Amino acid sequence: MKRFVLLDTAEIPGTQGALCLFEYGDDFVIKIAGGDGGQLMNTRMHGSEDALAAIPCKKIASRANARVLIGGLGMGFTLASALAHLRADAEVAVAELVPGVVGWNRGPLGAKSSYPLSDPRTRLIQGDVAEVLKSQNAAYDAIMLDVDNGPEGLTQKSNSWLYSAAGLHQCHRALRAGGMLAVWSSSADRKFTEMVSRAGFSVEPVQVYAHGNRGTRHTIWIAQKRA
């Protein structure tokens, strides 16, 4: 009988919270320490994390020297998906706030996504993706955000800036002409769709299955920068 085995706990910088990594049979699970037992992510269901990168990266795949930014390393599946769809001359920057998550991905957890941090196209930024974005102007061909459960921050209240009008306008500034923005969420949000549009994007919310072609579906906003 499978059971959850706690492997490690990692503090979330700037908060009193922490993330916990569990082994569950052949899979790994990340939960919030002291939470209700719900899973933030697991290695068995990552279809929407794959799609978060696959959909926008396919649209820019032919661009020479493409530069993309991923907010949130998670279990590495979004990073791996981006690398799979981009050319050999691309650079994929991934910003991860929690040092422990980086360590987990360099350890046994990383095998589930084929250790994308080891790819020479990967540039790891250990810090808050919001701080990275604030200093950028026309720097990226695509930005993919998966730092929380969606427009309503769960693990860190400061994440709400990324989903605010100011944060979305900064994403617009940080993108090159025709650049793509993709935002992951556990649920749909009509008001957020309208906010993305007002920030200067042509946007479509896409429903993606978490695993296979049935069961839980997540929302990914796919937005292209208007001139």
Rank of each mutant, 00 (worst) to 15 (best):
K59C: 03
I60R: 00
I60D: 01
A61D: 03
A61E: 12
S62D: 02
R63K: 15
R63Y: 01
A64N: 07
N65D: 12
A66W: 04
R67W: 00
V68F: 01
V68H: 01
L69F: 00
I70P: 12
G72I: 02
L73Q: 13
L73N: 12
G74V: 14
G74I: 05
G74A: 05
M75P: 08
M75I: 08
G76I: 13
F77Q: 03
A80L: 01
S81K: 09
S81E: 11
S81W: 11
A82V: 07
A84Q: 09
A84D: 15
L86F: 07
R87C: 09
R87I: 00
A88F: 03
A90I: 07
A90Y: 10
E91A: 10
A93I: 11
V94M: 08
L97I: 14
V98S: 07
V98Y: 13
P99Y: 09
P99E: 07
G103C: 13
G103P: 06
G103R: 15
W104R: 04
W104C: 10
N105P: 12
N105D: 14
R106W: 15
G107A: 15
P108H: 06
P108A: 15
P108F: 08
G110Q: 10
K112N: 00
K112Q: 13
S113I: 02
S113W: 05
S113A: 15
S118V: 09
S118Q: 15
R121G: 06
R123L: 10
L124E: 00
G127H: 02
G127K: 03
A130M: 03
V132T: 14
V132G: 02
V132D: 00
L133F: 10
L133A: 03
K134W: 07
K134F: 01
Q136F: 03
N137I: 06
N137G: 02
A138T: 07
A139G: 03
Y140H: 11
A142V: 04
I143T: 09
M144C: 14
D146T: 05
V147A: 08
G153Q: 05
G153P: 11
T155E: 06
Q156I: 02
K157S: 12
S158T: 14
N159F: 09
N159I: 10
S160K: 07
